[in-house]
């Protein structure tokens, strides 16, 4: 797999920064070529991941470091996926037990426990690991294989025609 760094953000745990990160991710995913739906999905996944870091890893303490690295990745896959967006989120909170990283059952109607579902439903790869005192959450969303866009046409115009016409 090859990786090219597209964006690196360093922020402090502060909920008022979430809209700033969303703004950056919305533009970046659009430029990257995702459909409007996938732009929203990836942005949502990153937003929920940072929210989880603030709430659970840093227990709502402000001023703690969070890093977001966004890279273009290229990988040969049997499914035909090739190019994708990798987002690596790093925090220095206490070690998290991956077994406890479970959302609530969706057939229960109660507040909370939805963030992880949103992340898993939005992304193709969701991996968590701990290395050198840092929690690392790696997310990847692959671009669907598409034919080149005609000059003057936007990806959204093509997406509206349905999968057969992409």
């Amino acid at each position: 797999m090859t990786r090219d760094l597209l964006l690196k953000l360093e922020l402090r745990s502060d909920p008022s920064m979430l809209c700033v990160v969303r703004g950056a991710m919305e533009r970046l995913t659009e430029v990257f070529g995702f459909s409007a739906t996938d732009c929203r999905s990836v942005t949502r996944a990153v937003d929920e991941a940072i929210t989880n870091i603030m709430r659970h890893s840093y227990k709502n303490q402000t001023g703690k470091p969070i890093e977001v690295h966004v890279r273009r990745v290229k990988q040969r896959l049997a499914s035909g996926h090739g190019v994708g967006l990798e987002i690596l989120l790093c925090d220095r909170g206490p070690a998290v037990d991956p077994a406890k990283m479970r959302g609530r059952r969706l057939d229960e109607i109660k507040p909370g426990g939805l963030g992880l579902h949103f992340i898993r439903q939005s992304m193709d790869v969701v991996e968590f690991k701990r290395a050198r005192g840092t929690n690392l959450l790696r997310l990847i969303k692959y671009l669907l294989p598409v034919s080149p866009i005609e000059p003057g046409k936007r990806r959204e115009d093509l997406a509206d025609l349905g999968p057969a016409n992409r």
Partner: peptide, 16 residues
Amino acid sequence: RYIDSSGVASLVEGLK
């Protein structure tokens, strides 16, 4: 334009 899981949780609390 955007609502996250904590916002959805607030709506669920309102519903309950």
